[in-house]
Design a protein around this nucleic acid. Structure first.
Lengths: 213, 213
DNA sequence: TAGCAGTAGAACGAATCATTCCGTTCTGTT
DNA sequence: AACAGAACGGAATGATTCGTTCTACTGCTA
């Protein structure tokens, strides 16, 4: 399968990825920005999604599913007899990599949820509770942390927006490491922080006015 | 001094506070939202500030000054022989209360900075370095944390936006406590977390579409 | 080679928003 | 008592942004 058909198939992919990249960076970005990022025309978008809202719904739903997949994996590792803390850390690392919270919490409110969203969301809550209870029962987490604290902690990561996606990921893992140290029960292991601290240049760059980019 | 003159003086105040509240919650909010929040007409704003940008500049400058004031206070406490960790914690608590990072980092880029901003910013960097070096030298902070990490950690707080300003503050202090535990050198004290975790209701509320508020 | 799936991007229309402007109300002064 | 104007509320304005639609073009594919 090649030619026109192939380009279309390729576009399916590049459009979704571009939408993810653009809307994760700026949830209120115009749809034209997605087209530009993908290197396609606007009509290529509208051929696939009837409206911007529908595209956002799709992205968010994918995010929810990805979240649930990570949770299921962690839960499986846990009930399979794996080390509780390792499973828990892997869970949070996975979510950080997938940037699921930028896709769900940051997009929430920009569209009216469908039944699918409700379903995945409910499922997420189940998995969450099961996972958290298991980890809590294993006693590897400090006792005054509650389930919903995790959501907020992960959501805080979305405020880190500096430079390239890779750099962002590096920084998020850096501070996740710190958070994990704080989350862990018992004596602090003080894991060495990965990555490097922001530079003065990175921090200063944000003062230049950005009307058009 | 009363009557018309008094109302004007009162408006000076209420307008600034409203602008802070509105733009901290949403840096791209329309100027009309500020007027509405303040309970005044739009012209009351334009009488005081020639443009939206000027108002933003003012807010940001106030934020920078507040930041520097906190830093100076902490530095004074430190060189005055106070406990280094207490001074450091007080510094971060103060910044969290004043929400200086919402006023500076989150507003940066929405206007072209003036010389005043540059000046205060440079001053902030001086104070920062002095303060951080002193705390670092005292050995109360884990060694792999660098100066600019603090900025990012504080900036992450600005992602916490749930419910009333009081609730937001409570949650930010809750996670600041956690971060402080992670930041501190040596054996983890595991300070009890203040406030209460987010509720499912608080978390779920964000899924309702918000086109008009 | 006819037809259509697929596309690029201009055109359109609605909405948003900063700013201006006009008419009104009060106050301090003459 | 009457007025000059400070201060104000909010409608009108004009520019801009942005989602969506529409037209014209391209090159498979049957």
């Amino acid at each position: 399968m090649s030619g026109r058909r192939a380009q279309a198939a390729r576009n399916d992919e590049v459009i979704l990825q571009s939408a993810r990249a653009v809307f994760v960076a700026d949830p209120s970005a115009p749809i034209a920005a997605v087209a530009e990022h993908a290197g396609v025309g606007i009509s290529a978008l509208y051929r696939r999604y009837p409206s911007k809202e529908e595209l956002l719904r799709r992205l968010c739903l994918d995010g929810l599913k990805r979240y649930n997949a990570e949770a299921e994996a962690a839960l499986a590792a846990l009930t399979g007899g794996g080390d509780p803390w390792t499973a828990f850390e892997g869970f949070l690392r996975g979510l950080t990599d997938a940037d699921t919270h930028s896709l769900t919490q940051n997009l929430a409110g920009t569209f009216t949820p469908t039944d699918d969203h409700m379903r995945e969301s409910a499922r997420a809550e189940e998995l969450n509770t099961a996972l958290f209870d298991a980890v809590k029962r294993a006693g590897v987490i400090r006792p005054d942390i509650e389930l919903n604290d995790l959501t907020m902690l992960l959501e805080q990561q979305t405020a880190i927006k500096i430079g390239s996606p890779e750099r962002i990921s590096e920084l998020r893992h850096r501070y996740l490491t710190l958070t994990l140290d704080a989350l862990r029960a018992g004596p602090a292991p003080a894991t060495p922080l990965p990555g490097s601290a922001p530079t003065a240049r990175e921090l200063g760059e944000r003062w230049i006015p950005r009307h058009k980019s």
